[in-house]
């Protein structure tokens, strides 16, 4: 699977043999595929799955941070956090809308999330145990999301690429806010500093896992690259994230929990330790600390809201009917 919120979904690869010439020409010219253009079914299915899983990640991602809205330690932080979680809902909206241009609908995609047929990024199956986790998520998780998503702004599918442009602008704001939370904590009291270090200790490795399995284990990428959906390999993106983050950790005065991190003059990159993917695969399989909780929260919200959604559509139907009746009376009156 190509790069999404994280690359860790492990979905199966699709390949395509029958590709319309107009589609191949568009790709060759780095043009954008638009909803009305001809496209191979496999390309369409891959995009639907990727965009849907990305959208699901945005809305499930509201939960770990939403967990701290009621407890934010200052009113300013509360306002920033509410706005951030609201942005994530907005990202979900843009992305479901982008998926709908491919001929699916949001309600159906949500059903697939709720019954487990579609996944979301595993990073959101980790708990937010302290206020510093809100900072760590902003800094590391939104930071990793940016590295994954900036290349998607050039994705071959127009609506997805355009949604990503809007999303990325907001994600970089989120990342700065997260950095600022951690900076304040690491320059605060000893207890605050310890809280910040603990959060970074817990979120560092899961953030690296957001880029998905190593390239050797990621046979799906080739097709997505050929389709212009994916631009860089998992390992390249992971390296880019590490290179971006190490100097920021130094600026924060916090230690990344990897003794092998050091600048490699020859490569022009930071070396870092090997990621233990066995944990990621356990979390993907549903054994993470919060998988069941995240799903039951989402399903409950959906089920508890069913009556209101039904009422809204019943009301809309009644109004449409009234409108039609009025129209009829007017036409008959004129005749």
């Amino acid at each position: 699977m190509a790069s999404v919120y994280g690359n860790d979904f492990g979905a199966r690869a699709e390949t395509s043999s029958d590709e319309p010439q107009s589609f191949l020409d568009l790709l060759a010219g780095e043009g954008r595929v638009e909803p009305r253009d001809e496209m191979p079914d496999a390309y369409r299915r891959t995009l639907v799955r990727q965009i849907a899983q990305h959208a699901h990640s945005e809305i499930i991602g509201m939960q770990p941070e939403g967990n701290w809205i009621s407890r934010a330690p200052s009113l300013r932080r509360k306002a920033i956090l509410m706005a951030k979680v609201q942005d994530e809902a907005g990202h979900g909206l843009y992305l479901y809308a982008a998926a709908e241009t491919l001929g699916v609908d949001r309600a159906d995609l949500l059903d697939q999330l709720h019954d487990g047929r579609q996944k979301y990024s595993s990073i959101f199956n980790y708990p937010t145990l302290t206020w510093a986790d809100v900072g760590a998520i902003g800094w590391l998780v939104d930071g990793a999301a940016i590295v994954n998503q900036v290349p998607l702004c050039r994705c071959s599918y127009g609506p997805y690429a355009r949604a990503m442009v809007r999303v990325c602008k907001e994600e970089s704001f989120h990342q700065r806010q997260g950095f600022e939370i951690l900076h304040t904590l690491s320059h605060g009291t000893p207890a605050q500093r310890a809280m910040a270090q603990d959060a970074v200790d817990r979120y560092w490795w899961p953030s690296l896992m957001m880029f998905g399995p190593p390239d050797d284990d990621s046979p799906n990428s080739a097709q997505s690259m050929a389709w212009g959906i994916k631009r860089f390999s998992n390992d390249d993106l992971r390296q880019r994230f590490v290179d971006m983050t190490v100097p920021q950790a130094e600026a924060l005065g916090l230690t990344l929990p990897d003794p092998e991190i050091r600048w490699n003059e020859e490569r022009g990159h930071y070396d870092f330790g090997e990621v233990d993917f066995t944990e990621l695969f356990e979390v993907i399989k549903g054994h993470g600390p919060c998988n069941a909780q995240r799903m039951s929260h989402r399903v409950r919200a959906h089920e508890d809201g069913a009556w209101a959604r039904e009422a809204a559509s019943a009301y809309a139907q009644k109004q449409a009917q009234k409108q039609a009746e009025k129209q009829l009376v007017r036409t008959e009156g004129a005749a």
């Binding site: 809305i59 509201m62 939960q63 939403g66 809205i69 009621s70 009113l75 300013r76 509360k78 306002a79 509410m82 706005a83 979680v85 609201q86 809902a89 907005g90 979900g92 909206l93 479901y96 929260h297 409950r300 919200a301 508890d304 809201g305 069913a306 209101a308 959604r309």
Partner: peptide, 28 residues
């Protein structure tokens, strides 16, 4: 704030967050 991530539909998560933010701004 409790409603954000618990509303009947995504548009409503956004709207209730907006309203909560306005109220919080007034309070501050």
């Amino acid at each position: 704030g409790w409603w954000i991530s618990r509303a009947p539909q995504l548009e409503e998560d956004v709207a209730l967050a907006n309203i909560g933010l306005d109220q919080l701004g007034q309070a501050r």
